[in-house]
Amino acid sequence: MLLVRAIIRPQKTGEVLSELMAAGFPAVTKTDVFGRGKQKGIIIGDVEYDEIPKEMLLIVVNDEDKDDVVKIIMRVARTGENGNYGDGRIFIAPVIEAYTISTGRQGL
């Protein structure tokens, strides 16, 4: 199992979640986050914003589903034809074990 952690623009969240659901990946945890990437924030006039609002999606998938999930997020979360700074990042990490609390069942 793998954890796909996607940090994306808030305005793209609804569309990404819809596409994941349609592709058979309904189980997602979403949280509001703040941060900055390589661009080190943005400057608008005299104001510097170094904590940009984003949303983080956490999706645990079977190893063989990782590429499908990543492709969906990349396609839907990208702004413009070639993308733009601030579109986000995707991180992949191994998941050693997973359990359903209500049933005690192991796995997805």
Rank of each mutant, 00 (worst) to 15 (best):
M1E: 08
L3M: 12
P10E: 00
Q11F: 14
Q11N: 12
Q11L: 13
K12H: 09
G14H: 01
E15Q: 09
E15K: 03
V16S: 02
S18G: 08
S18R: 15
S18M: 06
L20P: 07
M21S: 04
A23W: 00
G24L: 00
G24Y: 00
F25Y: 15
P26R: 03
P26Q: 05
A27Q: 10
T29L: 11
F34R: 09
G35F: 05
G35R: 07
R36G: 14
R36S: 15
Q39E: 12
K40M: 06
I42E: 10
G45Y: 00
V47T: 05
E48S: 02
E48I: 03
D50A: 08
D50H: 10
E51G: 05
E51M: 11
I52W: 05
K54E: 13
E55F: 02
M56T: 04
M56H: 01
L57V: 07
K66M: 13
M74H: 09
R75P: 06
G80Q: 02
E81N: 04
E81K: 08
D87S: 11
D87V: 07
D87Y: 07
F91G: 07
I96H: 08
I96L: 07
A98Q: 14
A98M: 15
Y99P: 10
I101S: 11
I101E: 06
S102M: 03
T103M: 05
T103F: 07
G104V: 08
G104E: 10
Q106I: 14
